[in-house]
Amino acid sequence: MGAFSDKLEYLSYPFVQYALIVGILVALCSSLLGVTLVLKRFSFIGDGLSHVAFGAMAIAAVLKLTNDMPLVMIITVLSAVLLLRTGQNARIKGDAAIAMISVSALAIGYLLMNIFSKSSNLSGDVCTTLFGSTSILTLSKAEVALCIILSVLVVITFIFFYNKIFAVTFDENFARATGVKAGAYNLLIAIVVAVIIVLAMNLVGSLLITALVIFPALSAMRVFKSFRSVTICSAVLSVFCALLGIIISVFAGTPVGSTIVAADIAAFAIFALTGALKRGK
């Protein structure tokens, strides 16, 4: 079992622990708004935004920014606001707009990286941005710190606005009619989603973020019936799957992002089955 204890020792290294902390926080944050995104049919926006974030990263790479997070964050948040606007004006056109923006960002992003990148391992770089790094051990200390700060902010915002998010998600028209500032809360939701997506890009890459956001919520919705229990369950489930995924990836040498998502998929299968059995009774 020499290899095994080697790996165990590996888990005690500070940079591995950083990775675990980041993984847990990102998983927690991304699951919180999952229910809202799924129910408001906003998952599209999440998907579109992750592609925008990819494009923004490519721009940051071209500009040779050492810390690309601020730029990516600004571009993604702005796009979130923009997408929400178009989505509200006309439902059907909104979906098309999102699709257009997301594929454009993807194409332009790849094009830019191709033209300007001096990297000898371009396809490796692209793969990393799309599917997450093969290990998240490459996180710099600054990134970890920023991630912790943003996660804490996201969690606090969510708790603070929990009742409002419920009201706006359950019945936006009622909320609006009775004097709740639904527009402002929608905007808040979009901004928080953008922040979460940028955070999660480090962990799972831009293509897999949607999975991280919606799978825990979909799983929890199979079994639980109240908004609160679904929210709590999806948070716990997401953190559990992220931990499991990171540990498996350390032991088996698999890519972190896809391992976590695979764990989320397995959890979904289990929850779907449990839900079906419960209903069958």
């Binding site: 229910v35 009742n163 409002k164 419920f166 009201a167 359950f170 019945d171 909320a175 009775t178 004097g179 709740v180 929890a220 919705m221 639980f224 019936k225 109240s226 908004f227 609160r228 229990s229 679904v230």
Partner: peptide, 14 residues
């Protein structure tokens, strides 16, 4: 996923 309780009290949001 929403309980009757959660929905009724959401009327007090305003």
């Amino acid at each position: 996923p929403a309980l009757v309780k959660e929905i009724v009290i959401s009327g007090c949001q305003n």
